[in-house]
Write a protein that binds this DNA or RNA. Structure first.
Lengths: 248, 248
DNA sequence: CCTAACTCCGTACACCTTACGGAAATCGCT
DNA sequence: AGCGATTTCCGTAAGGTGTACGGAGTTAGG
């Protein structure tokens, strides 16, 4: 929990050249900061952020543990670099269609990003490191509804809403997927184990609505939940709600 | 990552008496499972789930580390117990008003719960432990829109949407609060440190829309964001969107 | 050519969860 | 009353984590 080195980290983010302060006296670095960031992303992609460690990154690079601190100031700053890097790895498609199409694209972009790198879910940074790719993305998101008739304040609130929703929905999807992977159990198998125990332990008749709705949903989804459909459903509601705002 | 003990954990959840299997031969337990759960919640409330550890719980109880494993099977199961416990700590108010009022109450309940126990944000359980308080809450949430004219499937989707949104919005709020606490810095101070560095490092004129919107929002919020307002704004949009569904 | 600067890394510290096994306490049964 | 089964509590240890510190070796500038 050291006070983060703002100058150094922002310099790393915005021009990925200078790994160490500046001077060029000693031995050359064996790898680049980009290598470090890419290796770190690979580790996080494979094992998640909980299992992500500085040791695993250096192992992958053929360095020993402590060398990594000559490339990046610490774990938290490295994660900041990883986030901006994956934010930029796919270009942002040019906007077209009406604002509904565009906001759908914004939501889908967030959804895809979380699915490509599920560890983004596990990040809990206090305040974001502002990097070039994150800034480009925010500009692109706002541009989606520029000129559609919203006030500046509404534009910010709308993007916050849509992006927040997409992140939450993607989170649910990723969690469901990870549950299946990590337990080696499908929703159905999990339910088969839990249901009989619950039947013994739950007071019968105490949950009439849950029982009815749960059964209908379970049959429709063939699972506990259907994250894709939740995303679709929620996004349509939200867009309808925004449309109502426009017609106020 | 052991296979969790479903029988034992569900038994703990649904009737909090039997700490150990059953027999009553050996020495009495010095504290109760409830004591353990309450102490654990106190630790998590004070220090967050990242800093939460079995040792801190036993320290607080006057036990030594390993004794805790005679009360609960492991860390993950203890967290399951903590979640159900805090879910039940405030009663669920009876529903009144129309479905909009009721869904607002549902969203607000989630919002409050996350603010009362911010560590809920940090939980990443694969699949939930189904306990009595969680089950009561789900039933209450569904009851909010029972009879309002939605299909059973829509009911599930609406609750998923509203609860997911409220959780995400509360998360943003809690994160902002924690950022201030843990860094001892307000948004304004944080910006004062970052802005001059960013000015040097960002290509000028590259972010016209962000700059304009960011300025308006910043002046209006007196901060980077205004989580309360985002919650309000988002909830109104979502309710409007649901209303549009009802009038299809 | 020497010295300042830099990279790489060994060691150490303070944490974490939990597996294992032993000592002590308690109850049920003979 | 006393023994054996059962259970609690806990000491130890293994295998993880991030990072502070300082030393050895390499390189380039003056």
């Amino acid at each position: 929990m050291e006070k983060p080195d703002v100058d150094r980290t922002l310099a790393l983010l915005w021009r990925r050249t200078l790994g160490a302060p500046q001077g060029s006296r000693g031995p050359k670095q064996r790898v680049s900061v980009d290598d470090v960031v890419r290796a770190a992303i690979a580790v996080a992609d494979e094992e998640g952020l909980a299992a992500f460690s500085m040791r695993k990154v250096t192992d992958r690079l053929g360095l020993k543990l402590m060398s990594i601190y000559t490339y990046v100031p610490g774990r938290s700053e490295l994660i900041g670099l990883m986030i901006d890097e994956v934010t930029g790895e796919t270009g942002l498609p040019p906007h077209d269609g009406d604002w509904r199409d565009r906001l759908t694209a914004v939501a889908r972009q967030v959804w895809d990003e979380y699915h490509r790198h599920p560890w983004l879910l596990q990040v809990e940074e206090h305040r974001p490191w502002i990097g070039p790719n994150g800034s480009d993305k925010y500009e692109w998101q706002l541009a989606a509804i520029e000129g559609a008739g919203f006030t500046d304040l509404e534009m910010d609130q709308i993007i916050t809403l849509v992006v927040g929703f997409a992140a939450g929905a993607a989170g649910a999807s990723v969690r469901a997927r990870r549950a299946a992977e990590q337990t080696g159990m499908s929703d159905a198998e999990w339910w088969e184990i839990n249901a009989p125990v619950l039947e013994r332990v739950m007071p019968p008749g105490r949950y009439p609505v849950s029982a009815r709705v749960g059964q209908v949903a379970g049959e429709e989804y063939n699972a506990i939940s259907d994250p894709d459909r939740s995303f679709q459903f929620g996004l349509e509601r939200i867009l309808d709600g925004i449309e109502a705002l426009l017609k106020r």
